[in-house]
């Protein structure tokens, strides 16, 4: 029993961190038109095999587990990676047609994420993506987007564009069962943990250098105590994330409970930490050039995906842990 990255897992996490910091650093979001995965980013990620970590080797993937999936997406969260990156990865885990799956894994074919919103649908992802994924807790649908009639909406979060449509074009494939939803839940929880951690790192670094009244602001209890609270939130959300990922990998019967708990804690930790990070920076925290608001805005999007507060709490109320 060990509940932290170990051995090869550490190497994968480090490789992901290094790759993402170079290929899609959070700073990209300060320039215009930086939303979504573009074609070149998609193929760079594809070449490195990042979309198919958890896809079996026989199906063209790396044959790794939900643990590596979670480690990768935590690093994605730190860089506010667009959510179509997750859609691309989930599609790689779902598609049965060998040719199409290969093309998604290599990044040649782009996949967006669809969310049902009342009578309409919201699409998150680049307009050059030809496919899109709609996932519910018990099935996943893949659509081809040819002939899509969608309206562009102004997006608060610069990491993803938003389009809305009243009708989805061609259904390509439906897969029943929970695995795709679960990988989605794990991926978003991991990204939110990454955001909670990145928020904490930013303020800890700043509190060591910024001075007021002749002292570093990290010396004021009004600053250091909220920082400590942020660290506690990270610790709780991250431990639960590791547990959920491992339970899913080992096929434990209470994996779902842990996924729900992990997503709920990650929602709260990312939101509260992104909030405190802005507040404790003072004026500089509300500027566009700072990364603080990027973390907040992306957390607002992620916390609404793969389990919102109300649905998670409804399930958690009656959840039971196994031995």
């Amino acid at each position: 029993m060990y509940l932290a990255p170990d051995g090869d897992e550490i190497e994968i996490a480090n490789a992901a961190a290094e790759f993402l910091a170079d290929a899609m650093p959070i700073e990209r979001l300060h320039s215009v038109n930086s939303a979504d995965l573009n074609a070149s980013l998609r193929s760079t990620l594809g070449e490195m095999g990042w979309f198919a970590l958890a896809v079996p080797e026989a199906k063209g993937g790396s044959g790794l587990t939900p643990v590596e999936h979670a480690l990768f997406f935590r690093e994605c969260g730190r860089q506010c990676a667009p959510v179509d990156l997750l859609a691309q990865c989930l599609a790689a885990n779902m598609i049965s047609d060998d040719g199409l799956r290969q093309s998604v894994i290599s990044g040649e074919t782009g996949v967006s994420l669809i969310i049902a919103d009342g009578d309409s649908f919201r699409i998150f992802g680049s307009s050059d993506a030809t496919h899109a994924l709609l996932v519910s807790p018990d099935k996943a649908h893949l659509y081809a987007l040819d002939g899509l009639d969608a309206e562009v909406r102004p997006a608060l979060d610069p990491a993803n564009s938003i389009r809305t449509t009243m009708a989805l074009p061609g259904l390509v494939e439906t897969v029943a069962g929970k695995p795709i939803w679960q990988l989605g839940q794990l991926g978003t929880a991991a990204m939110l943990v990454g955001i909670a951690e990145a928020s904490l790192d930013l303020i800890v670094e700043y509190a060591k250098v910024r001075e007021t009244f002749g002292r570093k602001i990290g010396a004021w209890q009004a600053v250091r105590h909220p920082c400590a609270d942020m660290a506690v939130r990270v610790e709780a959300a991250r431990s639960e994330l590791w547990y959920a990922a491992t339970a899913l990998k080992e096929g434990r019967s209470d994996a779902e409970v842990h996924l729900d708990a992990a997503k709920h804690l990650a929602n709260l930790a990312a939101h509260a930490n992104a909030d405190s990070n802005i507040q404790l920076h003072g004026g500089i925290g509300v500027t566009d050039e700072h990364n603080a608001h990027l973390l907040l805005k992306h957390a607002m999007l992620l916390s609404r995906l793969f389990g919102t507060k109300r649905s998670l709490l409804a399930r958690l109320l009656n959840a039971r842990l196994e031995d």
């Binding site: 969310i115 919201r122 102004p154 997006a155 608060l156 938003i162 999007l301 609404r304």
Partner: peptide, 13 residues
């Protein structure tokens, strides 16, 4: 209100 209006809350220009 962000919870009430759901996805619309993520639209801003």
């Amino acid at each position: 209100v962000g919870e009430i209006i759901g996805w619309e809350f993520l639209e801003f220009n």
